[in-house]
Computed example of a mutant assay.
Amino acid sequence: MAGQIRRRNRARILAAAEQVFAEMGLEGATIQAIADLAGMPKSNILYYFGTKEKIYVALLQEVVRHWHESFSRFGTEDDPALALETYVIEKVRMSFSRPAASRLFARE
């Protein structure tokens, strides 16, 4: 049960952070803004992540993991044109389904 609460809280924080970082960038974002959007006390954010930079890194790792999963099925023996077409389709799909994550990915 405690593990589920932890995962749910981390996901809630990362969802809020995705929006805040996409709008304000790393420098403009604050832990308080993330806490406000997540509907949690600032102390909870600090408990789970410690710093704004650690939240940002965790968020980028999650976005990159998502991209890696989307494209890991292709290998050197696959048709490059098909791989590129699939990449573009997935990128557009992600841009619509998670525009804030797409902006973060583009910034990096």
Score class of each variant (00 low, 15 high):
Y56D: 06
A17R: 01
S102W: 02
R107M: 06
S95Y: 00
F71R: 06
G3D: 08
G3C: 05
V20L: 11
R98L: 12
I31T: 11
V63N: 03
R6P: 03
E77I: 15
A35G: 00
M1T: 05
F105V: 09
A58G: 13
Y87M: 06
L46N: 03
I55L: 03
F96Q: 12
A106T: 09
T76D: 09
V20W: 07
S97C: 08
R8A: 13
E85S: 12
E23Y: 10
G50I: 11
P80L: 08
G3Q: 02
I34H: 08
G75S: 11
T86G: 04
A100P: 04
M1A: 07
E90R: 13
G75R: 13
L104S: 02
I13H: 01
I89K: 14
S102P: 08
I89C: 14
E69R: 10
K42G: 07
R8M: 10
A16V: 00
T51Y: 06
S70K: 15
I31G: 05
I34N: 11
V88G: 04
M94D: 12
A22Q: 00
R65G: 15
I31P: 02
D78M: 10
T30V: 04
V63Y: 00
L46S: 05
A101F: 11
K52Q: 01
R73Y: 14
E62M: 07
R12T: 14
I34W: 09
P99D: 03
D79L: 08
R6Q: 11
L104P: 01
M40D: 04
P80I: 04
T86M: 00
S72Q: 15
P80N: 00
A83H: 09
D79Y: 04
R8C: 10
I13D: 03
L14W: 06
A81P: 01
S95T: 04
M24R: 12
A38S: 13
F74I: 08
R8S: 13
G50V: 12
G25C: 03
F74A: 08
G28M: 06
R7V: 15
E18H: 00
E90P: 14
E69W: 07
